[in-house]
Design a protein around this nucleic acid. Sequence first.
DNA 1: CTCCAGGCTTTAG
DNA 2: CTAAAGCATGGA
Length: 272
Amino acid sequence: MIKFKKDYFNIENTLNCGQIFRFFPHKNGYIVQSLDKACFIYYDGDFVIIESLFDDYFYHFFNLDCDYEKAYKKALSFDNEFLTKSANLGKGIRILNQDKLEVFYSFLISQNNNIMRIKRLIESLSSNLGLSFNAFDTELYSIFDFNKLKNCDEDFFKKIGLGYRSKYFVENAKDVTSEELEKLSILKTSDLRIALQKYMGVGPKVADCITLFGYARGDSFPVDTWVKKIYTEDFHGTLTDRNKISNYFVETFGEYSGIIQQYMFFSKRTKD
DNA sequence: CTCCAGGCTTTAG
DNA sequence: CTAAAGCATGGA
């Protein structure tokens, strides 16, 4: 069991800011899944409790060593109305340390798609290609077995509902492995971003999500349709190219780009 | 019916 | 090089 004060840790906001797709409400908290592991996270007074069989794994997963007060204060220092509002709304958000391969395939699904459907598709892949196990009185599936991906044809992925993204899975399943992604760790973020885009279906935005959520690169700023709206409506920017918008924000926020992006993405999507 | 969702690849200019 | 069409699917 892991127990810590809930300062700068909001369970709902951390799960609902679009960085993770495999979680769901359970009793007084949430069950959260990563690869073949699961944990049960909930509040107990002023504390957050994480129950699992893998304390070390989930301690790292939830990034519990990171000081988020700095990021929050950094966000306030820019004196931008929308950013200040977003930081106050989202200051309990943490960037999770997720598995690189799980992030890769998860965000391969994400393009031109919505979060509810992304969650459904990953769940469907898992129930078809993962192993079932029981935890917290619940029947769960591990993430889809990456070795089994190689043996699936395009029709299988289409039946799951991946649509035109099916061929991305067929292509990448041939050579995108955990080991291959791990090799790229030596690259600095800007080079890593380019390297990831060599894979079919991975463009600038998906690459940024992989560097941020899989490689823990704070100097990443994914620009999707929501963030583009933020840029024009709330920062009154004039750029239209997503690459340039991303570069602009990374130059502005530096190593805090990723978390600040999450504050704003969460804020823009939250109807108050 | 149209429009949109954590966009990318392909093709045209 | 930049601009725009085409793309699967399902919910609003």
